[in-house]
Simulated scan of single mutants.
Amino acid sequence: MSHTLRLAEQLISRPSVTPDDAGCQAILAARLEPLGFVCETIVSGPENFRVTNLWAKFKGFEASAQAGRAQGATESIAPKTLVFAGHTDVVPTGPLEQWSSHPFTPTHRDGVLYGRGAADMKTSIAAMVVAVEEFLAANPKPHLSIAFLITSDEEGPSVDGTVVVCQQLKERGAVLDYCIVGEPTSVNQLGDMIKNGRRGTLSGKLSIKGVQGHIAYPHLADNPIHRFAPALAELVATEWDAGNEFFPATSWQVSNIHGGTGASNIIPGELVVDFNFRFSTESTADSLKARVEGILTKHKLDYALRWTLGGMPFLTTPGALVKAVSESIQAETGLTTELSTTGGTSDGRFIASICPQLIEFGPINASIHKIDEHVLVSSLDPLKNIYKGVLERLAAL
């Protein structure tokens, strides 16, 4: 059994339903500390929702640099830092009886490894750790600083996980140059797609006020559903932006709309609408808010609107990191990878605020969050080799 597969199975066997890490990060720390990593556990959140975060930083380069200075070396050495980021928490399993095997018992069938977190994203984390082990065995004093940022709050509210660690790192003045997030980005084959950015997400809860009344006496009431209809039509028809070479056009979608008391003969007194923007770098959260509120005001609606900014868009344009990942994928698989910004949000939105170059790359994503989540066993060591190739390429710069 490969080292990557063995570690992946160890992690999958831990029932780490968000926000419970279930000991996964202790397993990782036990592998990283003998390599020269200083491992720090950062706990956050209320008592009933404790989140465990691991920040592990390789100190080997700093030690060799200090030794060189002690021997009178005058050349300034400034290593770049590559961060491997991911999450040990997983989504709930769903009905156990619908699984072909227990979700926290790693199971092999026909060359496929089944288990909750197999694709999202415990195999990525295992591949990252083994890649670092092999890289440091061959390069004990690399011209590269390496770190791991692992959380147990990615599948949950994401308020006590990566965002907390990033804030602490920012306050410490930590410098991060590159980051690879192990999200499952591949579509049909390992390496056919990487994410070099993500759209922003902005949600709104809109309340339209009316006057409740008997449906037979509409002149004594004011139907908020009717009032909102013209504004809804305009919101749906609005082109918010045209996107750009990296992002599709910004999208506005209603996710829920509710009015009424449950009786068919009552005009409701209020309409509640939930909606969401997935927006490109061509728009800002403030500009979208202003345009929505302008439309609502134009239609003379009596409304209240509460906004929630879930994340800003981020983008890594082709540079050293994209080049290193693309070349490593091609060397291992022969594929020319596709750069993409599609999909939902990830913790990359937090890390991008303190790290200028960030990409997401991991295994095939077709089974994530599903019953019988799985990953091809044959993809695990190639994934590890790609991560290792990135280390080698960045260390050579």
Rank of each mutant, 00 (worst) to 15 (best):
Q66N: 12
G86K: 13
T41F: 01
V83S: 00
E47G: 00
I125Q: 11
Q98H: 12
L144D: 02
P34S: 02
S100L: 07
Q71D: 07
A131F: 12
E154Y: 06
V43G: 00
L35G: 00
R50L: 02
P103M: 10
K141A: 13
E154V: 13
Q98R: 14
L96D: 10
I77D: 02
K122G: 08
A119F: 04
E134C: 11
R109N: 05
A118F: 05
E62S: 07
S100Y: 00
G115N: 06
A67E: 12
G115W: 06
P103R: 14
E154T: 13
A126C: 10
T81N: 05
G60E: 05
G86I: 14
P34V: 08
A85S: 12
E155P: 10
V38C: 01
A138P: 07
G117H: 05
E134M: 10
V90S: 01
T81R: 12
P46H: 01
G60D: 04
A30W: 00
G45E: 01
A137N: 10
F61N: 14
A131I: 14
H108D: 07
F104V: 15
R116S: 07
D120W: 11
F104I: 15
V38I: 07
A67D: 11
V132Q: 10
E155Q: 13
R109V: 10
R69T: 05
M121L: 15
E40Q: 08
A78P: 00
Y114C: 06
V130W: 05
T88A: 04
D120C: 08
H87V: 15
P34A: 02
A85F: 03
G68M: 08
F61S: 09
F61L: 13
A118Q: 10
G45P: 02
G111C: 01
S158D: 06
P92Q: 11
V130C: 11
P79L: 06
S152L: 09
N48W: 08
